[in-house]
Design a protein around this nucleic acid. Structure first.
Lengths: 151, 151
DNA sequence: ATAATATAAAGAATTTTATTCTAAATTTAC
DNA sequence: GTAAATTTAGAATAAAATTCTTTATATTAT
C-alpha cells in the first residue's frame, strides 16, 4: 500500500466503472502496472466488491428510518439469536452492535409508512428480548458519501 | 421499469462489475437489450453511480461511530449553516436530518480513538448551535448490505 | 559504492467485452 | 386484425481488459 495504491482506491470508490486506461492516464503510468495493482488490491481484500448505487426513492423506497434498539438480555446466546433474526428482515439494510445509550442501531428502508409500521409491529416486535425501540425518520440526506476519506 | 429492469438492478447492485453478457445469459436475452436497458436505467437515474466498496479497517479506519446531535436553534438559517459545516468534515461519511428524539444522525469514520476525540473536541464542538452530542461506538457490523431489497 | 537480485513498469499482442447497426420479432393501440 | 412503436436478435466494429516479453527501477548484500 503506497501512494499509488491509495490514489487508485480513491478513484475506484468514486467511480467503480473508471477504466484501467483512465486510471493509468491520471497517474501517469501505463495500463499494466495499474491492472496488476487493482488485481492485487482486490485479491488482498482492500477492495471488497463493486456495486451499482441505486436511487432509493426511484426504486420505490420512499421511507428511510433508524431504530435504536435496547435488549433485555445481554448474554451471548441472546445476542447471537437477535443478530441472526434481525439479519433476515430485508427491510434492515444495516445493523450495528454499538456501545452507548442503546444496544443496536439499524437502518431501515421501506416503501412507505404503512410498510414501516408493518415491519415494526409484526416483524421487529415479534422478536423476544427487545426492551425498547426508538425510531428516527430521515427527512433529509445531508451527506451520503459511501466512500472513505482516504488521504 | 418492468421485471427485467428490476432483475438487472438486483444483479448490478450485488456486483457492479457483472458483464452485460453475463446479465444477458442469466436473463435469457442477448446483449443488445440488456445494454440498452442498463443505459436507460443510468440515464433515468435509477442507477446513480458505480463504486468500489473498500474494506474500512484495511484502509486504516479502525473506528466507526454514530453521533446523535441535537441543535439549539432550529430556524432555517441555522439548519442550513449546520448542514453546510458538517459536510466539510471528511470524518463524516453520512449525515441525516431526522425526526425523532434528536435532530441529526451522523456516521463517523476515524483512524482511531484519538482521531475521533480530535474530531469531537476540535471540529464538531467548534460548531455553534450544538446543544447535545451522544456517541455510539460500533463494536460489530452485524449487517451491511448497501443494497436495496428490490423484489 | 557496486553487483546481484527482486520488483515494477513499458510496450506490444491477444482476448474479451462494450457498443453500434440493421433486420426481425414482439407488443401495443386503435 | 392491422399499423405503428417498441423490443430483441444477430452480426460487425470499437474499446477495454488481460497477458506476455522486455526494459527499467529499486532494493539488498557484500
Amino acid at each position: 500500500m503506497d501512494t499509488i495504491d491509495r490514489s487508485i482506491l480513491l478513484l475506484l470508490q468514486k467511480d467503480g466503472k473508471i477504466t484501467i486506461k483512465e486510471i493509468a492516464e491520471r497517474l501517469n503510468l501505463t495500463t499494466t502496472p495499474i491492472f496488476e495493482r487493482v488485481k492485487k488490491l482486490e485479491r488482498e481484500g482492500y477492495i471488497k466488491s463493486y456495486k451499482a448505487i441505486l436511487d432509493r426513492k426511484k426504486v420505490g423506497f420512499q421511507l428511510m428510518a433508524f431504530c435504536n434498539i435496547t435488549l433485555n438480555q445481554h448474554q451471548k446466546d441472546f445476542i447471537k439469536k437477535f443478530e441472526k433474526d434481525i439479519q433476515r428482515f430485508p427491510e434492515v439494510v444495516e445493523c450495528y452492535h454499538v456501545a452507548g445509550m442503546f444496544d443496536y442501531l439499524i437502518k431501515i428502508y421501506a416503501e412507505d409508512m404503512e410498510r414501516y409500521q408493518d415491519f415494526l409491529s409484526n416483524k421487529l416486535a415479534s422478536l423476544e428480548n427487545i426492551s425498547k425501540v426508538q425510531s428516527s425518520f430521515v427527512m433529509t440526506e445531508v451527506k451520503d458519501f459511501s466512500y472513505l476519506p482516504i488521504s
